[in-house]
Simulated scan of single mutants.
Amino acid sequence: MRSALRTSIVTAALAGALLAPAATALAATAPQSATTVTAAVSANDRYAGEPVYVGNGMVAVLRNEAEGPEAWIRYVGDQWKPGDNYMVHVVALVSRQQTSAEAHGASFELTKAQTASPVLVVTTKGVAKSYPLPKGKTGQVCSAEKTQSIGAGMNAKLSMSPDGPRAEIWAAGEDTAFRILDRGFPALPESAGILARIVNPSGAAPVFEYKTQGGDTTLGRTSFPALPKGCKPNYKVTEEQATDKPAPKPQPTATASTKPASAKTAADVKPQTGAQTVVVPQGGVAAGAEIAAEDTDNSITLAAGGGLIAILAVLGAAWTARNRTARNRG
């Protein structure tokens, strides 16, 4: 019984371990729900606004903030109703800089764009309808833009407003921007296939860098248009610090030693504190051991040999005298 229980637990754990990566991958590739997208949009006020359905499956998102009056035309499908998600994809944009556009069989025009009460006029099959934008402040336009060709049939619409630099990357023949870069998302990932980034996005003079072709193609650089005089950014201007400068070389200190590593002074020599490596015998041969340990030159060897010869000579003489005495007695 216990064996079967243990087997079932191990099987369940193994199944969970095998299924976890698949579940994670499925969650990562699953499309975002309307609720998720709406929540993400609500956190980014730059693209939020007042949505109105204008027909042909399109919603006009009306805005009139610091960057001026805008109407973002987004395709949402024929079943859209107020309260549904409207952040699907952009098909057109009208603003003070570009007051007219066309998409999906309809034309759009932003009228009274320089006043505090701009109006969006949508014309479909000869029938025009008007949609007032939120009230704004009349006065100076605090935005500027320019278009830059970046190669491979692509253009970048670069704009500067109190919200900071913005780059819309458009491919030829497409009615929606390929990518949009701003201060919150200043660079494309490597997986995009091209290089496009805003350098120093929160600085006083941001620069757009791009490279859409491989080989020996050089990196393109162009400045964003400056804010009109009298306009100020609504964020703190901070210049990025370069981090690719070489590290300074270490300087020699006053206490650094300049002598070679092999040279040693008396101060460098320390008394030996390790265990003695010469084995010193105990007892009657201790003196001889000390000599062997300390004096190992040839003079000691010769002296020892001479002493041995003298001892042998004395013993020989004594032995001879003893034999003579024994013979005389006999």
Rank of each mutant, 00 (worst) to 15 (best):
residue 4 A to E: 08
residue 9 I to L: 15
residue 10 V to W: 14
residue 11 T to E: 12
residue 13 A to P: 01
residue 13 A to N: 02
residue 14 L to Y: 10
residue 16 G to E: 07
residue 20 A to Q: 08
residue 20 A to T: 13
residue 23 A to M: 12
residue 26 L to N: 10
residue 26 L to D: 10
residue 31 P to V: 05
residue 35 T to A: 14
residue 35 T to K: 14
residue 35 T to P: 00
residue 45 D to T: 00
residue 50 E to Q: 10
residue 53 Y to S: 08
residue 53 Y to H: 13
residue 63 R to N: 13
residue 66 A to F: 06
residue 69 P to I: 09
residue 70 E to F: 09
residue 72 W to L: 14
residue 74 R to I: 12
residue 83 G to A: 03
residue 86 Y to F: 15
residue 86 Y to M: 06
residue 88 V to T: 15
residue 88 V to I: 15
residue 89 H to V: 10
residue 91 V to P: 10
residue 96 R to K: 09
residue 98 Q to E: 05
residue 99 T to Y: 04
residue 100 S to C: 00
residue 106 A to G: 00
residue 109 E to T: 10
residue 112 K to F: 07
residue 113 A to N: 09
residue 119 V to N: 03
residue 124 T to L: 03
residue 124 T to H: 04
residue 125 K to T: 05
residue 126 G to E: 10
residue 126 G to V: 04
residue 129 K to R: 08
residue 139 G to C: 00
residue 140 Q to W: 00
residue 141 V to E: 01
residue 145 E to K: 01
residue 149 S to I: 01
residue 152 A to S: 12
residue 152 A to K: 15
residue 152 A to F: 08
residue 155 N to R: 06
residue 158 L to S: 02
residue 160 M to L: 02
residue 166 R to F: 11
residue 168 E to P: 08
residue 170 W to I: 14
residue 171 A to V: 06
residue 174 E to R: 15
residue 177 A to C: 08
residue 185 F to K: 15
residue 191 S to W: 07
residue 192 A to C: 07
residue 192 A to I: 02
residue 193 G to S: 12
residue 195 L to S: 10
residue 197 R to G: 04
residue 198 I to P: 09
residue 198 I to G: 11
residue 200 N to G: 08
residue 201 P to A: 11
residue 207 V to K: 10
residue 208 F to T: 01
residue 209 E to G: 02
residue 215 G to A: 10
residue 224 F to Y: 07
residue 225 P to I: 07
residue 228 P to F: 09
residue 228 P to Y: 11
residue 229 K to R: 05
residue 232 K to L: 00
residue 234 N to K: 14
residue 245 K to C: 01
residue 246 P to C: 05
residue 246 P to V: 11
residue 252 P to L: 11
residue 262 S to P: 00
residue 267 A to S: 13
residue 267 A to W: 06
residue 269 V to A: 14
residue 274 G to N: 13
residue 275 A to G: 03
residue 277 T to K: 06
residue 279 V to W: 04
residue 290 E to T: 00
residue 292 A to H: 00
residue 292 A to Q: 00
residue 297 D to C: 02
residue 299 S to Y: 08
residue 310 A to L: 08
residue 311 I to D: 02
residue 320 T to D: 03
residue 324 R to W: 09
residue 329 R to D: 12
